[in-house]
């Protein structure tokens, strides 16, 4: 009986950190009716010092337009390996993009900031359209964008 309890405690102790290391997070981006083609959006994370950590999502599949997501492009040199498996379609004006990702817990309350760059064909590029600190308290609070994004929010 004792050995069974010990085994159970051990497996729980080993399993729990694995479960607690990541959680599903929903990122919702709603665009304004800016009256243009579909917007390309780059969602990426920087650390407290402003260094690029990695990308979370790319809305828009043609690499030839990525140079217009200027901050993201500068940070990554347009390396599409950064966004393999996390790329979807561009987002039309007035529409809402909802992405649910399994994100590491270490991203939250650790000084990381989520950035969104936006670009629309034949319209002005909008780097750093949104910059929102990743905190558990900030979850669910909408943040306004500068040009094409009406608001952005993340929920855990």
């Amino acid at each position: 009986m004792k050995s069974l309890l010990a085994t159970l405690a051990l497996t729980t102790a080993l399993t729990f950190p694995g479960l607690a290391m990541a959680r599903p997070v929903t990122l919702t981006t709603t665009l304004t009716n800016y009256g243009g083609d579909g917007a390309y959006l780059a969602l990426y994370v920087k650390d407290a010092s402003g260094a690029y950590m990695g990308s979370l999502w790319m809305a828009g599949g043609k690499s030839k337009y990525y140079e217009h997501l200027t901050d993201w492009y500068r940070a990554t040199s347009g390396d599409t390996a950064q966004i393999n498996g996390i790329t979807g379609a561009s987002v039309g004006a007035g529409r809402s993009l909802e992405i649910t990702l399994d994100l590491a817990d270490t991203l939250f309350d650790a000084g990381y900031t989520l950035h969104v760059d936006a670009a629309v064909e034949n319209m002005r590029d909008s780097p750093n359209e949104v910059a929102v600190p990743l905190t558990t308290d900030g979850a669910g609070t909408p943040v306004k964008g500068r040009r094409y994004i009406a608001n952005f929010a993340y929920k855990m």
Partner: peptide, 27 residues
């Protein structure tokens, strides 16, 4: 062009867990 979501695993950049693959919805 990058691989679309669902065709390959997300990049191992330390931001993602090993759980569910990305889900996307456009409204």
């Amino acid at each position: 062009n990058p691989a679309p979501a669902g065709t390959v695993a997300p990049p191992a950049n330390g931001l993602f867990g090993n759980g569910a693959p990305p889900k996307v919805q456009m409204n």
